[in-house]
Design a protein around this nucleic acid. Sequence first.
DNA 1: CTGCCGCTATGAGGGCGGTTCATGGATCCG
DNA 2: CGGATCCATGAACCGCCCTCATAGCGGCAG
Lengths: 292, 292
Amino acid sequence: MDGTVDLAPQELRTLVAVADAGGFSAAAVPLGSTQSAVSHAMRGIERKLGVVLFERGRYGARATPAGARAVAHARRVLRMLEVMVTETRGPGTGAVGGPLRIAAFRSAALHLLPPVLERLTAAHPAIEPTVHVVREIGPGTAGEVAQGRADLGIATIGTGSPIPPELVGDVLLEEPYALVHPAGHPAPRSLPLVDWAENCSSYTRAWWAAQDWIPAASVRAEDDGAVLSMVGSGFGMAIMPRLSLTAAPSSVEVTDLGAERPTRTVGYVTTPELAATAAVRALVRELRAGKK
Amino acid sequence: MDGTVDLAPQELRTLVAVADAGGFSAAAVPLGSTQSAVSHAMRGIERKLGVVLFERGRYGARATPAGARAVAHARRVLRMLEVMVTETRGPGTGAVGGPLRIAAFRSAALHLLPPVLERLTAAHPAIEPTVHVVREIGPGTAGEVAQGRADLGIATIGTGSPIPPELVGDVLLEEPYALVHPAGHPAPRSLPLVDWAENCSSYTRAWWAAQDWIPAASVRAEDDGAVLSMVGSGFGMAIMPRLSLTAAPSSVEVTDLGAERPTRTVGYVTTPELAATAAVRALVRELRAGKK
DNA sequence: CTGCCGCTATGAGGGCGGTTCATGGATCCG
DNA sequence: CGGATCCATGAACCGCCCTCATAGCGGCAG
């Protein structure tokens, strides 16, 4: 039915833009083009591939399963082309540079990455890292990487969320959870437990099961920062990972949970093709250096 | 100096063709194009990248260091585009297919791969594997993979030849060397030692150093198959890895070298971006299944 | 030195593909 | 039903890439 199929970079960009914008008309704007061109291009792409990639309708365009795969691949190919350009220009050894897109959940972005990026940019001034804060729920940071929206993700890794088979990565650290409560409170265990959506309860469930007490009530907050501020205001107590407790205000008190405390595993994830690039490798090196 | 640089697939193919053919005129043939088109295209590519990629002369065209990097990247990007097409069409789960280029050294191609490919093609009839036999000297099979000429390589892995940092891979098996000599020969140790270029002596050097005898003479043969046939004809004896001794004729006798015998490590190597593809993962799974 | 024979470079012209413009068709909404 | 907002489609346009023809360059043989 076909020999060698050529998908031009412009076509790949169209694919991505349509997926991002959710429609042909909307996609034309960031492409600096017109709705008609997008429509023609998409027709051509679908004809070349022999697959329907988007369902069109009154609402716009939604990716079919095949379309979603195509978009994820398109993002990666476009990124590879970018990498090809920067690595062809740069003399290979020595200075590495170019953009580096990092996806991280909130506490990692705030407390784990800064020193790492400090060292990275000191060693390679030409690298331009951007950090994208992503909720670690659903596909999470690994999803961002798999979809080609980020070059590297800082993710929580566990039996419930292993490194996806089409990605590569490694463990960076295993951090303990600790009890945090208002400083000087006479009976912290009587306070309601504050939790937040991102906190994967699977890490702490086993620990709770072994305890001989359960919290009086449970409250939900937006993110770990909000939890910490609520605890600091005396509204409750919480079980939080150490990263979220870095730079905790003096109005809270942190107490270790002992030998049986729950822990969570933090690692990095990257797309296999980017693991080979100089910039990603430099970042991974610095991440590991901070492992200690 | 530039915004977003577009390198069309046709331009990438031109890049690769010139590198392979060693000149613009010669490259035009496989491209089904003309020398002029190649020249124009190359000028455009170099202008876009702002780098000279090939040194031209009356001999043809030789890649500069930047050119070599560009070509290696181009091969990979083209392969990714191919993968994108096949994986967009295929329903993801279930049938995987498409071409799968394997580079292997001789004994692996003859004795390690057949059963693996047997199982692979049985499980996935749509996969079309091709095996490329490569001398495991110099860059070897890993070089083929790094240059984008193969999707996966079977390589010997050791301290002298670790997995290159820009590639990924794993160890498959550690196989012992054994002494092989003409069947029924009264004094095999008096025969000359037959060796071949591909045999990395570093594996056996330590073992020889611990022996209290050295061979009377040393002869070189073309490859391990030739060595085996020479031994079978009574011309000498040899120290060979087990893979090379699979299906050895009855005219030779194999004797184990005991607990202190030398060994070599055999593994696979693949480009990071291909490690994510369904076809490569299926092959790796079968390779590991044969590990036992 | 000169004619010849490999290369690549370059300029002019033509064809094809992608873009635009204008318009039509479908669907939802008030 | 008119309006709004999508996508589809066809014709005209424009630019890019390719081809053809030719020039330039450097050896090599006589």
